[in-house]
Write a protein that binds this DNA or RNA. Structure first.
Lengths: 238, 238, 238, 238
DNA sequence: AATGAATGAGTATTCATTCAT
DNA sequence: AATGAATGAATACTCATTCAT
């Protein structure tokens, strides 16, 4: 198959890989299958990519890059801006707001952000599956799921943190906050996307209903964190 | 290596498989690796199992069986007993309790159950990882993760449901309740187990601290469902 | 070893397979042996054929196709033509000729055909061996030997029969005729080819002598069927 | 399965082997299949036989022994006796009889012998198949089919020959006679037995009809050899 | 850009055979 | 006589990758 536009061929290889990797897993997918689904010869794959693994890396890295962009945007328009406006102050293990209006403002921003993130992971759900599969294995992408968390977290080396860090040097999350955020916020989001198709079938809901239902659940969760003028996770036994 | 008790050999094959499948995934694990880790010859594997896949099936099926036992136990000592005692009534989309004492009673039972489930998934975390990996693929075990959910759910054909159903014919969960329970209760639990080792490393917590932190998060979540004399998921926008 | 014309490589695989299958039998031949005799790698065999069995199928099917062509040719230039010329009439269990000249004419054609068939099976004797081996087994080719017989026989579904059938609707062979034709005409021919090499050694004859001797035997057999103005197999006890 | 009479167990192994070897061929039959069909463990087979090949050897050797007995009997009661009685003289390329009565006598004996041989090969048809399969391969039993022919033939080393040889030192068959006897007498007989089941199906004849039909064919063949006071195969072109 | 022939190391599985009990 | 666990070499087949054109 001759093609003037090499980019389109490359796209076809990528899309075939996404579909196959997300269905059968990386290991169980053969280059032959990718080739035939993409409508190219096996040899041609090696013109565009150095190896099968390089295709995987490309997929995951692209996803991580897009995710970073979204997270960065939230941090900037949300947290950093509120700090600069004097509406928010980050203490050792909690975020302190100037008043009830600031909390409502922040809450809206967080929920908006979560909704945007939800749209993103649903759109990219095939790659999300691949990421989940690979993050469970001893692979190069073993830690990518955690890197997603750290995107809004407290690692020295991630760009989002650096942004926050520069805005307020005292920022740090408590351990509880981190656990909560990861396992009851990011993990549900990622898993919702990863298992979307199958869950939709067994739930008999429409796309709209399902998405709304999931967001309602998140709001309940989130509301449970907001109390009075604080967002907190107390270290004393509740 | 001769061995009178073939069962021990079989166990060694199973344990090696658990370790390898959970580390590298089923597809990337070779029978040669299983054999050498189990200290047996490749041929012997096929004396005990019909195929590599049959080993996987065995692992997953065992896990599902154990999980069912735990869930059944909770339903019996928790829900069914309270209904029989007249302390709990199950309505269309909520559980209604006779008084505050009944709620505290029930809450304790749920949290105890979650803790027991947590101990279980942590102990079996290697197999949980395998289950997660396989449930993401188009495999025989594609739906096993959902079957875990349905264990305390409302399918006509699962043993736990049948038990509840006999106790109260009107029982049913709302769609929201199901989404919440799956994505913000089971999914975090499963993922906590699956990513336990790696999370522990990056969190720098001890086993005890980590487990307690996770349970505290769950309690917050759970508390947000309890209100007055009801446990509910409201269908109106919150 | 690169080769522009893949067909030549394919031929080498086919020829090696013929040699090995006919010597050791299909089951006892390994793909490794085929590869090394053909001077290719094991993997390449699977580039040209889907499986070892597909090679076998190809060999046998080719032989059957060639045999069909030869049989068809005989039917056309022999039987059908004589019927059209009014020299031959086919009755229920015998062929009736118009006169002695017609019989001599027909006899010459049958013997010529048998000689051509003999040349064919001798040339293809390696594949004939394979066919015999497989037709003795519960394999896909279990009935191919009989299909050879039916090529000039009376099945509704074979092309030769259809040709004759169109020429004379009353045509049918008696059971005796069929037994005779198969076991004392086709079977000797096929076995002559299949055991040719070994028989030649123990008989100490040259190719020419052996072939002539075999044909003389056939002529005696054939002559015993021709009597008066008929070719027949009587149903009364001889 | 415990068994007091080891012989019966041995028989079960033999019978299972006959059935399986004749259906799938020696190479494609596994010791596991033999064991399960015989109702014994794999290990036990090696108590009774040194190897899988030894089972095959046993089957074929038994058949050859029985066949030899039948052939010997014919030679004694047929040929040798007639020679001793002065009714038959064996010349270079023909058998010369004293008169028409001697021919009828001899013919009856030959046909009786063929009929007995037919009963024998039909009874042993499973082993005959195995013999045919093996005689087509480069195996230990490569020449066993020819050894069957030589049983009434002219090899220095076979017991039947020795008997005839001692009765008349001038005995020898012409090449033609040998070709005829092998390919149009023994080969049809053996093939009739080997393909019996399948041929029966496609011919729609009963056992009785089929056997009679085959014998009638043989009689026609045989009659064509008997002419005047001689049984001959002429070396001049017929 | 694209093809398709070719490679070779690897993979699950099989199987005749052994052997301690 | 009989079992069943164990072996290890072999087997059909796969697949990521290379490369000349």
């Amino acid at each position: 198959m001759k093609n003037d536009d090499g980019q389109e061929t490359r796209e076809r290889i990528i899309n075939a890989s996404i579909q196959l990797f997300s269905q059968k897993g990386y290991d169980a997918t053969t280059t032959g299958e990718i080739a035939s689904m993409a409508g190219v010869t096996k040899g041609l794959i090696y013109y565009y990519f150095e190896s099968k693994e390089e295709i995987l890396n490309h997929l995951v890295d692209s996803l991580m890059k897009d995710a970073t962009t979204i997270a960065m945007d939230f941090v900037h328009t949300g947290i950093v801006q509120m700090i600069r406006d004097g509406k928010l102050d980050i203490e050792t293990d909690r975020l302190r707001f100037i008043d009830g209006g600031a909390i409502r403002d922040f809450s809206r921003k967080v929920i908006d952000y979560y909704e945007r993130a939800l749209d993103f992971v649903l759109e990219k759900r095939a790659v999300i599956r691949i990421l989940m599969l690979e993050s469970l294995k001893d692979s190069k992408h073993h830690n990518d799921l955690f890197r997603l968390m750290e995107l809004t977290g407290d690692g020295e080396d991630n760009p989002v943190f650096k942004t926050i860090y520069e805005a307020d040097r005292d920022f740090t999350y408590s351990g509880d906050m981190s656990v909560f955020k990861f396992f009851f916020s990011i993990v549900p989001l990622i898993n919702f996307a990863a298992h979307y198709e199958e869950y939709k079938v067994i739930s008999s809901m429409s796309d709209r209903e399902l998405k709304d239902s999931f967001l309602r659940s998140f709001k309940i969760i989130f509301a449970s964190l907001v109390s009075g003028s604080e967002i907190l996770l107390r270290n004393d036994k509740t």
